[in-house]
Design a protein around this nucleic acid. Structure first.
Length: 114
DNA sequence: GTATTGACTTCAT
DNA sequence: AATGAAGCCAATA
């Protein structure tokens, strides 16, 4: 499995996050079958082809913090996109207790087949 | 081969 | 709650 296959796998997993919910980098890595590779998820999201619509903004740190520096252009963009779908962002962070995605594993694995 | 780099995580202050 | 060190590990160089 080369690195580009892993990126695709990560992108497909992120595409399963429903609007209005968020997931952590580590969580995506686990779900994509790449446990311990949270940092790889971040890298992959930086390489998303723009024609492939991937909701990168629904991915946060395990603490609920946005991965970007508060006030940065990226952080503001991410905050805006999240709030558009009803996710509350306060002080650069989201309450995971309220918005964390909890996928049905069987359904997720099925979707990743495609 | 070794070294560096992260859109990270966890644990200990 | 905030900060920092240590751990992490594939991808790059």
């Amino acid at each position: 499995m080369n690195s580009s296959d892993k990126y695709k796998r990560i992108w497909k997993t992120v595409q399963q996050i429903p609007p209005g919910f968020v997931a952590s980098y580590g969580q995506i890595a686990d779900l994509a079958g790449l446990p311990g590779r949270a940092r790889l998820v971040g890298k992959a999201l930086g390489f998303v082809p723009k024609e492939m619509r991937v909701p990168w903004f629904r991915v946060l740190r395990s603490s609920g913090q946005l991965a970007f520096a508060p006030g940065s252009q990226s952080a503001q963009t991410q905050k805006g996109l999240l709030q558009e779908e009803g996710v509350v962002v306060i002080n650069n962070r989201v309450r995971l207790k309220d918005f964390q995605w909890q996928p049905d594993l069987a359904e997720l694995l099925f979707k990743l087949e495609y």
